[in-house]
Computed example of a mutant assay.
Amino acid sequence: MPSDSFAPGRSTGTGGPLTVSASVTRGITGLSLWWLASPAAFVLASVVGLSSRDRDPFWELVSVVLLWSGIGGVVAAPAVGLLIAYRSRQRPARRRFAIMGAVSLAACALALLFWEFAMECAPGQTC
């Protein structure tokens, strides 16, 4: 009788190797690339938003889509990637997404701190 312990996509039940499907690997790679492309999306959103002085609705929409794509890459990509890596039991991917989340959290904290200082009134002015 053949053993099912080496069937693709199954674990042995005793901590044996677990094969990871190609779609999980592609998903992890895609989320990592989305996170890496987020700064470029922010820069492009600001360039498109500042250069469209005539307020063309198409370029306004492009700017908003790029901005939300960047925000989603910073916030959602590490969280979803960590969840997928945890469910598929991939330790290196878990470490990578945990580091990505920590870097994203630090960048968001610095952005909020900068925003707070940028919104302060200059000395002698009333707000």
Rank of each mutant, 00 (worst) to 15 (best):
E120Y: 01
L113Y: 13
P123W: 02
E116F: 15
V103N: 02
A45C: 08
A98R: 12
R96Q: 10
T14F: 15
L31E: 06
I84V: 15
C121Q: 05
A40R: 13
S11C: 07
G13Y: 05
E60I: 06
W35T: 01
D56P: 00
R55F: 01
V48Q: 06
E60M: 11
M100Q: 11
S23D: 11
S5C: 10
R91M: 08
V64G: 00
P92F: 01
G27R: 12
S52F: 04
G101T: 02
V43T: 08
Q125H: 10
I71D: 03
P78A: 06
L33E: 10
T12C: 04
L66V: 11
G16Y: 02
V62W: 01
A98E: 06
R10K: 12
A45T: 09
L105Q: 03
G16P: 06
G49I: 12
L82F: 05
I99D: 01
E60W: 04
A102V: 15
L33N: 05
S104H: 10
L83A: 11
M100L: 07
V80Y: 05
Q90M: 15
W115M: 06
S23N: 08
V65D: 03
T25C: 01
S69E: 01
G70Q: 08
C121S: 13
C127I: 07
T29G: 05
L61E: 08
G49M: 10
G81K: 09
S51M: 14
I84G: 14
L36G: 14
S46F: 10
S104Q: 08
C127V: 09
W34F: 02
W68L: 15
G72Q: 07
W59Q: 07
V103H: 04
S88P: 03
T14G: 11
A40W: 03
R87C: 01
S21V: 00
T19V: 05
S3K: 12
A93V: 01
G13D: 03
R94D: 00
A22M: 12
G124V: 05
T25D: 04
M1I: 12
R10A: 14
A45G: 13
I99H: 04
I84D: 00
G101V: 01
A109C: 13
A76K: 15
R53G: 14
E60F: 02
S11D: 11
G70F: 08
L112C: 14
S88W: 02
Q125M: 12
Y86L: 08
G70W: 07
P78N: 09
I28E: 04
A122W: 05
F97I: 00
G124I: 04
D4R: 12
A7E: 09
R55K: 10
M119L: 09
L110D: 06
L44Q: 07
R89H: 14
A111V: 07
G101P: 02
D56I: 00
A45H: 06
F114T: 13
I28M: 08
A102L: 15
L31T: 11
R26F: 06
S21T: 10
T126C: 03
R26V: 03
V74Y: 06
T126V: 13
S32R: 14
F117S: 05
L36D: 01
V80D: 01
V103M: 11
G81F: 06
